[in-house]
């Protein structure tokens, strides 16, 4: 299977994602420039973190108009696998590929630190190697990670099991004390209804090697590889 990492001007986790896929997971991966119009035989697209277009105007607001987004939307419609991390998540929201919006962190500060998230759903192609309720230590690094969706939207997300990750304590308690940014219902990551697109604020590529203190993020990439290579059905 083949990965692609999209590079927008201002992406800054593109090389980190590339490194994890190529050197840690040992799978083929290529960069796709934001002005490209075709994905060419890719199985999974990663929209990396960073500050696409400087996040000027609003996070992800300009990137969604990049030429490559047409190809990505088409790929999504055909059921292709897409992971948006941090700024990539924000771009997917702006592009309407995932529901909801992102507000500034409630403390009005950028926050970079390891946090705990709980895997609420292991029936997705991105999370099939986790146990339900498993607590993962994965860092966040963002200014706008305060996920918001209205009550109706939230109910829909829950009814369809689209909430994949929620912020929690080391012991797995999900409550406001362990909500770093004010996100609705402690939401850290969601999928679309079809389950082929994942958006998450924490950075799994920063917790995929023992040297960096945690390998909990590794299994997101590994799940998708297993799913695609073994044609698991989730």
């Amino acid at each position: 299977m083949k990965f692609a990492v999209v590079v927008f001007p201002g992406s800054n986790c593109d090389q980190d994602c590339f490194y994890i896929i190529k050197d840690v997971l040992k799978r083929p991966v290529k960069y796709i420039w934001h002005k490209d119009t075709a994905l060419d035989g890719v199985d999974c697209v990663v929209l990396p973190g960073g500050f696409s277009y400087g996040d000027y105007l609003r996070t992800g607001a300009i990137a969604r108009f990049s030429p490559v987004m047409n190809a990505i939307t088409g790929f999504a419609k055909k059921g292709g696998s897409i992971i948006g991390i941090c700024n990539g998540f924000q771009i997917l929201l702006e592009a309407g590929l995932l529901p909801g919006v992102m507000l500034r962190n409630r403390g009005l500060h950028f926050i970079c630190k390891p946090v705990y998230i709980k895997a609420d759903n292991n029936q997705t192609r991105f999370t099939n190697l986790y146990n339900i309720g498993q607590v993962l230590k994965i860092p966040i690094a963002h200014n706008e990670g305060n996920y918001y969706i209205d009550a109706k939207g939230l109910k829909e997300l829950k009814d369809n099991h689209q909430v994949v990750f929620r912020y929690c304590s080391a012991a797995g308690d999900v409550n406001d004390r362990y909500n770093p940014n004010g996100a609705v219902d402690n939401i850290a990551g969601i999928t679309n209804k079809k389950g082929n697109i994942l958006g998450m604020m924490p950075h799994p590529e920063r917790s995929s090697e023992i040297k960096l203190g945690s390998t909990d993020g590794y299994f997101i990439f590994k799940s998708i590889i297993d799913w695609l290579e073994n044609k698991k059905t989730c």
């Binding site: 800054n12 090389q15 980190d16 926050i111 970079c112 690094a141 590529e205």
Partner: peptide, 11 residues
């Protein structure tokens, strides 16, 4: 201060 800085990018 340092939690406001991205101190992990580039892994």
């Amino acid at each position: 201060a340092y939690e406001q800085y991205d101190h992990m990018v580039q892994t």
